[in-house]
Design a protein around this nucleic acid. Structure first.
Length: 977
DNA sequence: CGCTCCTAACC
DNA sequence: AGGTTAGGAGCGA
C-alpha cells in the first residue's frame, strides 16, 4: 500500500441486515431457500467491483476487503455485561444466509475477514489506520454512525444505497459535531440497539450543543455544575460514570491483531467461472447474465457451485409456491396473493391519470349550483364530501360541501366560511369581513338545491366514510339515499390487521398513486389547528374538491372488485345498509346523569387521596404511583421484592397479576397500588371524561367505527361506550349513570354465549350442539366431559376452569395463554388442552382446517362470506405465524357473531315500525343492543327485539344451534344489564 | 407536540 | 389467548 492507493472496506455484517430488511423476502425458486439478503449483497458487491474495473469514473479501489463480525462476545462485554444484551436473535430466514454470503465473497475472489472476539468495526478501524499511515485513502462502505469517528481527510464513508459519500463536513451536518467528537457524542447519547447506556435525557441535538460549548466529554462532565437546565445538570452529574463507560464502549479499537496483512488486500480480477457458478447455483438469473457478459463467461458452459449451506440449517418451511408476505411487487417470484395484487392492473390505469387541483371550481351563486346539480342528475351519480367546523359529525357546523361528477370535474360550495379572528383588527369597518371571505350562497337556499339531488333515488351518492356525511346532512334535515361508501367497499375487500387502514389518504396513495392534501396541511394540528371555516376559500376548494374527486376515482377502481372477489353480498347486506342505522343511533345519543358522575368523581378523589397518603408513607415523597417505571424500581429495586415477569422492553412488569401475587404474599404497597390504579382508571377514563362528552340535553353521542376491526366487529370512539365498567361494584356505579329519558326505560338485550354456539355449529361438535339444543349449562357440561365430575353439585372451581378453556378455544388456545389465565403451570395447561381435544376431536379438526385454509388463501371467511386477511400467517418468524394462526381461528367465530348482530340491527328499525313501537336503538356492545323504550311498551318491545335478534342468522343461514337472547329493562343501564 | 410503552376498561 | 379504545408516563425534537 502506498500513496495514491485506495482501500475499500465493506462493513459486511451491517450490509447483510440492511439488505435483509430493505428487500422483500426472496426465495430460491427451485426449493424455497431464503436468499433475499444474499441477492442484495451480491448486487451491491458486483456494483462495487464493476466500478473498480472502470478507472475512468469515480474512485477506484486498489485494495478491497469485506469484513464481518465473528462472535457475539468481545472485549466490550468484559467492560459491561449489558453490552448488546437486548439484541434479538437474527430472523429465522436470515440465519442460513450468513454462510451463503461468505460463499459469495469467496466467489468474488475477495478477502473475507473476521476475527474471533472482535467486531467488524474494530477491524475496519485497524485497517483504516494502517492504510492512512501508509499514505493511502480509505473508503468504508457503510452508513453506520458507529464508524463516523473514523472519518477524516483521507477516510470517507460511502452509503451505497443512497450513493452518498460522507466526509467530515457531512458528519458535522448530520450530527452537529466533527468526527473527532463523534465518540463523545455517542457516549452522551448512548445507543438503544447496542444497549450503550449514555446519559438519560440527552439526545443527539443536546449532545452536540453541549460539546460545542464545553469542547470534550471530560470537560463537560467536570464542569457539569455550570449547566443552567436543572434536569440536564442532574442527569450529567449522576450519570457521569455511565457516560465514561459508554465512551469506552463506543470507542473503536484500531490496534487489533490481524490475520491478513494490509498489502494482501490487493484487488484482482474476479474469476468468471467461479463467480458465475455461484450465482447460477443461487438462481439469480439477471445478475448471472450481467456478470457473465461483463466477464466474458458462457453461462451454459459453467456448472453450478456447491454451497456450504446445510439443509438442516434452513429456516422455517417456506413453501416455494407461496411467496412470503409482503409479496414482491414484481418479478418472477411474485404470484398474486392478496386482492391488492389482483387489482394492480386497474390501479395502474387509475394511477396513470393525473389530478389537477387548479381545475376545481368554487361555487358562489345559486344559479351555478343548480346547473351543476342538473348535470349530476344527468350523470346519475355524484361523489360528495362535507366540511364541518369540528372533526366530529355530531357537533360541527356545516362549512361547505364539495362534489365530483367525473374524474377531474369537481367543485366546492362554501357555505359557512368566516374571516379568521386575526383579521378582525384589519377589517374593523362594517362589512369588511364578509367582503374578504367573498360571496356564499345562503345556507338554506343551497341546502334546498342540494337536497333535491341528495335525496333523489335516481342519483347514487358516493362518499368516503359516508356515515359522517350522512349524519351531517341528517342534522340539516336531509336523508341522503342511495349511498355508496368507498371506505366500506375497501373494508369489505381487504379487512386485514397488517394493512394500514381504509382512510382516504391511504386508499388514494395505494390505488391512485396520488397523495391528496391532508387535513393537517390545510388546518394544522394540535394547539395551532384552526377551523376550516377560517381557511381561505381557494385553499379549501383545492382540498375539498380533491377529496370528492379522489372518492369518485376510488369508487371506480374499487366497486367493480366486489362482484369480482365474491364480496358484493358482504358489502350490500352487512355494510351499506348499516350506515343510516348507526348514524341515527349516534344522533340519538344516550342520556347520562351528570350528578351521579360528579358525585362518583368526588368519592373517587377522596379515596385516592387516602391511598396516596398510604403510598407516600411507604415510599416517601416524590414517588409517582402512575409510573410503571418508578413502581418497578421501587418494588423490585428499593424494596427488594422478588420480581416476576418482564415486559417486551425489558422493564419489570407491574400489571395487576404481578401486583396481586405480591399482595397475596402480604406486601402492603402492591395492594394499595392495585386499588389506586383501579380508582384512577375509573375516575380519569369514565367519571371525569364522560361529562366532557355530554351535550346540552345531557346525552352522549359516541361514534361507531365500521371499518376499524379485522373481524367485522364495530368499535366505538369519542367516547368509547363499549367498555363502560361492569365487573366491579364501583365500576357498575358508573354504568348506573346511563339512564333513559323521562317516561322511558333502558332495555338491554344480549346474545347468550353466541360465539360458543357458533363454534358448536361450525365445528359440528355433537355434544356441544346437543347441549345448546337442550339448554344445559355449557361450561358445566364441558367440565363434566373433561374432568368426569357430575353436573349436579359441581364445584365452582371446576366449572371455572372449563369456562376458561371454552374461551381459550374461541381465542385459538395455547398452553401459554391458558396457563396465564388459570395461573397454573404450562404443562398442566397443555394436559387440559390435550384432554379437551380428545373429548372433542372435531374442534381440533376445525382448527386445523381453518389454519390450512388461511395458509392456502391468506384469509378466512365468516359464515356470511366476510373475509379477514392474515397474510402474515406465512411469516418466517414462528411467533408471528402462531399469532396469526390463532387470530385466523378466532376470526370466523367472532366475525360471524358480528355479522349476525349487524343483520339484527339492520332489521330492527323496520320491525319496530311495523309493530308500531317507538323504541329507539342507542348502543351496540358486540353481543348486546341497548334501547330506550316507552314505559308502557316495554313487554312488547322486549319480545320483538329478542325475536329479531334470535332470528337474525336466518334465512340465509340455518344454524344447528338456537340463538338465545336475554332481555331486561330498567331505569338505568346497570340494572337493565 | 407527537410518538411509543404500559396498563386497564369492555366483549 | 381473540377483538378493541383510552389515559398517563416518558422521551425526543
Amino acid at each position: 500500500m502506498k500513496q495514491g492507493d485506495h482501500l475499500f472496506l465493506v462493513d459486511g455484517s451491517a450490509y447483510i441486515f440492511r439488505a435483509y430488511h430493505a428487500l422483500p423476502p426472496l426465495t430460491r425458486k427451485s426449493d424455497g431457500l431464503p436468499v433475499g439478503a444474499v441477492s442484495g449483497f451480491c448486487n451491491m458487491l458486483w456494483k462495487l467491483v464493476e466500478e473498480s474495473r472502470d478507472t475512468s469514473v469515480g474512485v477506484a479501489p486498489t485494495h478491497f476487503a469485506v469484513i464481518f463480525d465473528h462472535s457475539s462476545t468481545t472485549f466490550r462485554n468484559a467492560l459491561y455485561d449489558g453490552y448488546k444484551a437486548h439484541r434479538p436473535a437474527p430472523p429465522e430466514d436470515l440465519r442460513p444466509q450468513f454462510a451463503l454470503i461468505r460463499d459469495a465473497v469467496r466467489a468474488f475472489d475477495l478477502p473475507c475477514i473476521e476475527k474471533q472476539g472482535f467486531e467488524a468495526d474494530d477491524l475496519i478501524a485497524t485497517y483504516a489506520r494502517l492504510a492512512v499511515e501508509a499514505g493511502g485513502d480509505v473508503t468504508i462502505v457503510s452508513s453506520d454512525k458507529d464508524l463516523m469517528q473514523l472519518v477524516g481527510p483521507k477516510v470517507t464513508l460511502y452509503d451505497q444505497m443512497k450513493d452518498k459519500r460522507l466526509g467530515p463536513d457531512a458528519v458535522f451536518e448530520k450530527f452537529g459535531v466533527y468526527p473527532e467528537k463523534m465518540i463523545d457524542l455517542q457516549a452522551l447519547v448512548g445507543d438503544t440497539s447496542d444497549n450503550v447506556p449514555g446519559v438519560p435525557g440527552i439526545g443527539p441535538k443536546t449532545a452536540a450543543q453541549l460539546l460545542e460549548e464545553f469542547g470534550t466529554l471530560e470537560a463537560l462532565l467536570e464542569r457539569a455544575g455550570e449547566i443552567k437546565q436543572q434536569k440536564r445538570r442532574d442527569s450529567l452529574v449522576s450519570f457521569a460514570d455511565q457516560a465514561r463507560l459508554s465512551k469506552q464502549l463506543v470507542t473503536l479499537d484500531a490496534n487489533t491483531p490481524l490475520d491478513v496483512a494490509l498489502d494482501d488486500l490487493f484487488i484482482h480480477e474476479p474469476d468468471g467461472e467461479k463467480l458465475v457458478a455461484f450465482l447460477k447455483a443461487m438462481e439469480f438469473t439477471t445478475l448471472t447474465k450481467r456478470v457473465a457478459a461483463k466477464l466474458g463467461t458462457d453461462v451454459a458452459e459453467v456448472g453450478t457451485a456447491k454451497l456450504s449451506v446445510d439443509r438442516q440449517a434452513r429456516g422455517p418451511d417456506l413453501d416455494p409456491q407461496a411467496p412470503a408476505s409482503p409479496p414482491a411487487p414484481s418479478g418472477d417470484s411474485a404470484l398474486p396473493f392478496t386482492p391488492e395484487a389482483l387489482a394492480a392492473g386497474r390501479r395502474e390505469a387509475a394511477a396513470a391519470e393525473t389530478i389537477d387541483r387548479s381545475a376545481y371550481e368554487t361555487i358562489r351563486d345559486a344559479a351555478t349550483l343548480k346547473r351543476w346539480m342538473a348535470e349530476a342528475v344527468e350523470a346519475g351519480l355524484m361523489a360528495f364530501d362535507t366540511e364541518t367546523a369540528s372533526l366530529s359529525a355530531m357537533n360541527g357546523a356545516l362549512v361547505g360541501v364539495s362534489f365530483a361528477l367525473a374524474s377531474g370535474r369537481a367543485a366546492y360550495v362554501p357555505l359557512g366560511h368566516v374571516a379568521p379572528p386575526e383579521a378582525a383588527d384589519l377589517l374593523a369597518e362594517p362589512g369588511a369581513a364578509e367582503k374578504a371571505v367573498g360571496a356564499q350562497i345562503p345556507m338554506n337556499e343551497a341546502l334546498a338545491i342540494l337536497k333535491s339531488v341528495l335525496e333523489d333515488p335516481s342519483v347514487l351518492k358516493i362518499a368516503q366514510n359516508a356515515k359522517y356525511d350522512y349524519l351531517v346532512m341528517l342534522r340539516q334535515g336531509i336523508a341522503v339515499a342511495p349511498l355508496d361508501d368507498t371506505m366500506l367497499i375497501s373494508y369489505a375487500l381487504d379487512a386485514s390487521s397488517s394493512l394500514e387502514g381504509h382512510g382516504m389518504d391511504e386508499l388514494s396513495e395505494r390505488f391512485l398513486g396520488h397523495k391528496p392534501i391532508s387535513f393537517k396541511e390545510l388546518c394544522g394540528s394540535g394547539k395551532s389547528m384552526r377551523s376550516i371555516a377560517t381557511v381561505p376559500i381557494d385553499k379549501v376548494t383545492e382540498y375539498a374538491a380533491e377529496d370528492a374527486d379522489v372518492t369518485l376515482r376510488l369508487w371506480r377502481v374499487l366497486k367493480p372488485r366486489l362482484p369480482a372477489d365474491g364480496l358484493a353480498h358482504v358489502y350490500e347486506r352487512l355494510e351499506r345498509p348499516l350506515v343510516p342505522v348507526l348514524a341515527r343511533m349516534e344522533e340519538r345519543g344516550i342520556k347520562v346523569d351528570r350528578q351521579i358522575l360528579s358525585r362518583l368523581s368526588g368519592r373517587f378523589a377522596q379515596k385516592l387521596g387516602e391511598i396516596e397518603a398510604d403510598i407516600q408513607a411507604i415510599t416517601g415523597e416524590g414517588f409517582n404511583p402512575g409510573s410503571p417505571k418508578q413502581l418497578g424500581d421501587m418494588l423490585f429495586g428499593k424494596l427488594g421484592l422478588p420480581g416476576g415477569k418482564k415486559t417486551k422492553t425489558g422493564q419489570w412488569s407491574t400489571d395487576v397479576k404481578v401486583l396481586e401475587e405480591l399482595a397475596a404474599d402480604g406486601h402492603e404497597l402492591p395492594r394499595r397500588i392495585v386499588d389506586w390504579r383501579q380508582l384512577t382508571k375509573l375516575k380519569n377514563t369514565y367519571t371525569d371524561a364522560l361529562v366532557t362528552h355530554m351535550d346540552e340535553a345531557g346525552r352522549i353521542h359516541t361514534s361507531f367505527s365500521m371499518a376499524s376491526t379485522t373481524t367485522g366487529r364495530l368499535s366505538s370512539t369519542e367516547p368509547n361506550l363499549q367498555n363502560i365498567p361492569v365487573r366491579t361494584e364501583e365500576g357498575r356505579a358508573i354504568r348506573s349513570a346511563f339512564i333513559a329519558d323521562e317516561g322511558r326505560v333502558l332495555l338491554s338485550a344480549d346474545y347468550s354465549q353466541i360465539e360458543l354456539r357458533l363454534l358448536a355449529h361450525m365445528a359440528r361438535i355433537p355434544q356441544l350442539v346437543e347441549a345448546f339444543q337442550a339448554g344445559t349449562d355449557i361450561h358445566a357440561m364441558t367440565a363434566s366431559e373433561m374432568f368426569g365430575v357430575p353436573v349436579q353439585g359441581m364445584p365452582a372451581d371446576v366449572r371455572r376452569r372449563a369456562k376458561a378453556i371454552n374461551f381459550g378455544i374461541i381465542y385459538g388456545i395455547s398452553a401459554f395463554g391458558l396457563a396465564a389465565q388459570l395461573a397454573i403451570p404450562r404443562e398442566e395447561a397443555g394436559l387440559y388442552i390435550k384432554r379437551y381435544f380428545e373429548r372433542f376431536p372435531g374442534i381440533r379438526d376445525y382448527m386445523d382446517e381453518t389454519k390450512a385454509f388461511a395458509k392456502a388463501n391468506g384469509y378466512v371467511s365468516t359464515l356470511f362470506g366476510r373475509r379477514a386477511h392474515y397474510p402474515d400467517i406465512r411469516h418466517s418468524n414462528p411467533q408471528v405465524r402462531a399469532f396469526n394462526e390463532r387470530a385466523a381461528i378466532n376470526a370466523p367465530i367472532q366475525g360471524t357473531a358480528a355479522d349476525i348482530i349487524r343483520r339484527a340491527m339492520i332489521r330492527m328499525e323496520p320491525a319496530l315500525a311495523k309493530s308500531k313501537l317507538s323504541a329507539r336503538m342507542l348502543l351496540q356492545v358486540h353481543d348486546e343492543l341497548v334501547f330506550e323504550v316507552e314505559a308502557d311498551e316495554v313487554d312488547e318491545t322486549k319480545a320483538l327485539v329478542a325475536s329479531v335478534m334470535e332470528a337474525a342468522a336466518g334465512p340465509d343461514l340455518d344454524l344447528a344451534v338456537p340463538l338465545v337472547v336475554e332481555a331486561k329493562a330498567a331505569g338505568n343501564w346497570e340494572e337493565a344489564h
